[in-house]
């Protein structure tokens, strides 16, 4: 019903040569994380980490993934957030 757009995911991983990928899904899509993980692993060979935590919006991306040497974060259900004046 909601399109996972896995072809875009595969293309992006190949384009960036990402070896480690973190996937972040909204709650409604979390039950399909296995499909996402298996497809990415099979098609690209990248190690896939599934973000366990929240996905409230594009403002809610996991922080600190660089410390785990994640090459690419793929976040479903939102588009880029236009930042306002902040810190």
């Amino acid at each position: 019903m909601y399109n996972l757009e896995l072809e875009k995911v595969i293309a992006k991983i190949k384009e960036t040569n990402a070896k480690t990928v973190c996937v972040q899904l909204p709650d409604g899509m979390k039950p399909h994380a296995n499909i996402v993980e298996e497809t990415i692993s099979k098609e690209t060979g990248a190690r896939v980490f599934i973000w366990l935590g929240s996905n409230f919006g594009a403002c809610d991306v996991p922080l600190g993934l660089n410390r785990l040497h994640i090459d690419l974060l793929i976040s479903w259900g939102h588009n880029k957030f236009q930042k306002e004046e902040g810190w």
Partner: peptide, 13 residues
């Protein structure tokens, strides 16, 4: 680290 956002569009009419 790069981030790819996917909108997960509704694919029916």
């Amino acid at each position: 680290m790069e981030t790819l956002f996917l909108e997960a569009p509704y694919d029916k009419n």
